[in-house]
Design a protein around this nucleic acid. Structure first.
Lengths: 335, 335
DNA sequence: CTGTTAGCGCGTTCAC
DNA sequence: GTGAACGCGCTAACAG
């Protein structure tokens, strides 16, 4: 661009400017012993004058570690990857570790491609983020670095995986509705191809059964993770005439549609029906009218957990298997 | 973890296994000349057997380039950063360049911190993504690598910036409403601290004036980028009794709130009022009822543009100043 | 065509 | 307390 294309300065230049040898300069800058205080100051000043930044490539060539981890995601929107990224930065301590983010777009070929790029760059570890919680095939080949699977667990039990506790999330939602006095509870969820849809439903049903209750219509209504489906499903429920006073929606988007249809059907939320969603996706929950109660899956925590597990895996073996991160209910106006 | 902790193999090992020297092995693997075909095959096989991946750190130590760019974002949600990330991957060719993503969370201290980390890692270039289109201070210091500012332009004209064409977006929205026969057009927008709010309004007003028209109520209603504000503002408009048949909303979220309030006020969309938003954020637009027409700011294109500009900056000076990326109207049911 | 050598920038021995 | 020498893994230039 302009004047800013200052060439990067090297340790040798710093040493020359300070009038010492490279070895001394190195020690001075890295806070090592056997350097006189006055020399240290001289070197530091020289480094500052040249705005010297050590070359990580050279450094990692020696140490074998790069201070870099790879994050391969299949999650286009970043709804899951970004909290995980932020969690990773938190867990590692910002600056100490940098994150290489690759978007595989759910494509195995691209995934392999990015994996190669990450290995060439000698990442110290890899986090693989899925776009749904269905188990996924492990990364192919035997890798020279630890891998942690986040959101979508690996099919292999010997891998380390961190997933949201979807069964628990369903249970939390059901318990919350029961606690607010609802007894006739319906459940609308998304695409039945998603493991999460079934697990959340299982969690709900288990809680209801403990109270001798069952779902309105006897089963969940599966469809799609969309507002449209939320409207359609509620309309059907209303037409069927099965009265209900509590509604668990498989996602906040479904819940938004449900709120619309309930209002259109003359039902007041929360007076006539309590509604709870899952995800606690704020643009959806805060924007809703009334504001939507939702189960937060604690994805940032999931991200931090994944980062911590990767961190321990980098030192030695970490506990293999599936780690579950619990959610929490965020209460708003709809219940 | 388990057996997979295979040590990384080096070129020397490949060379030994293939029974050649390192130099030859290097040439063979890098498709360089002066290697017999049979030798090349032998080396390749050895490399495959050891699942050898070249060490980029060593390679970049020689070439001075790391094949890595930094992306510093202040955009928490990733609404802008991720399209830009994907655009960058597209533009560079996936795998050739990897992206280090840092989240500065709008904090100057963190930004400086991450900048340092990126420089230590010898990135070939940096893209800075803002969370709003207001001009922002340039990265401090004279940097040894090119920088491109995306979404939020640099305050300095001598930097390279890429921003959405907000004035144009407003104009597109107004033109679209006029084209569908609306004449009495109101405009609800977000936080007036955002440059984007004013520019979009300017674009709308300019188009209306060309037709001898002006905004209902004579000026835009500024507030917040929320559904709540959309509802409030429309309610006020309806109460004021100023009739309108077209409504430009500064964001899709505002538009969602507006749709709700219009329905509550007995107005049919699109029959009585045509509504158009900005962002084309699909969870919002597709989920709306009726589905929302919106101006797409073409952020992926903005991302690709930023990546291309960075790419050219890496070779030589690129055109300084602010580059604007035009939006487009995505027509749905609300107009 | 293939092998040998030097050196990228840095940290870490060792001698001094 | 300081400096010189070696090597991390790789490529480039030259020698054979």
């Amino acid at each position: 661009m302009t004047d800013e294309m200052r060439k990067r300065s090297t340790l040798r230049e710093v040493a020359e400017l300070a009038g010492v040898s490279m070895g001394t300069a190195s020690k001075a800058l890295n806070d090592r012993q056997h350097v006189r205080a006055s020399t240290r100051v001289k070197v530091r000043e020289a480094a500052a004058a040249l705005s010297f930044t050590p070359n990580e490539a050279a450094r990692s060539l020696i140490g074998g570690q790069t201070g870099t981890v790879g994050l391969i995601t299949g999650d286009l929107e970043g709804r899951f990857s970004l909290p995980i990224l932020m969690g990773a930065e938190d867990a590692f301590g910002a600056g100490r570790v940098s994150v290489l983010l690759c978007d595989a777009r759910g494509d195995t070929i691209r995934e392999k491609y990015h994996l190669d790029a990450l290995l060439r760059r000698n990442v110290d570890g890899i986090i693989v983020v899925g776009s749904r919680t269905n188990p996924r095939p492990r990364l192919s080949g035997s890798l020279p670095v630890p891998v942690v699977y986040a959101y979508a667990p690996s099919e292999s039990e010997s891998d380390v995986s961190v997933v949201p506790d979807d069964t628990g999330a369903g249970a939390l939602a059901a318990e919350h509705l029961l606690a607010t006095g609802r007894r006739r509870i319906a459940h609308i969820s998304g695409d039945p191809d998603y493991t999460a849809a079934h697990e959340r439903a299982d969690g709900i049903v288990a809680v209801l059964e403990q109270q001798g209750l069952s779902l309105v219509q006897g089963r969940p209504l599966f469809g799609a993770w969309s507002e449209h489906w939320g409207r359609t499903a509620v309309t059907r429920l209303l037409e069927a005439g099965d009265e209900f006073d509590g509604l668990v929606c498989g996602s906040d988007q479904i819940a938004r549609g449900a709120l619309d249809a309930l209002r259109a059907g003359g039902r007041n939320v929360p007076r006539d029906v309590g509604v709870i969603g899952v995800d606690n996706w704020e643009p959806m929950t805060i924007g809703a009218f009334p504001m939507l109660t939702s189960v937060d899956l604690n994805l940032e925590r999931l991200g931090r957990e994944a980062a911590k597990l990767l961190f321990t895996s980098m030192a030695g073996p970490a506990t293999a298997g599936i780690h579950r991160v619990h959610g929490r209910v965020v209460t708003r106006e709809s219940t």
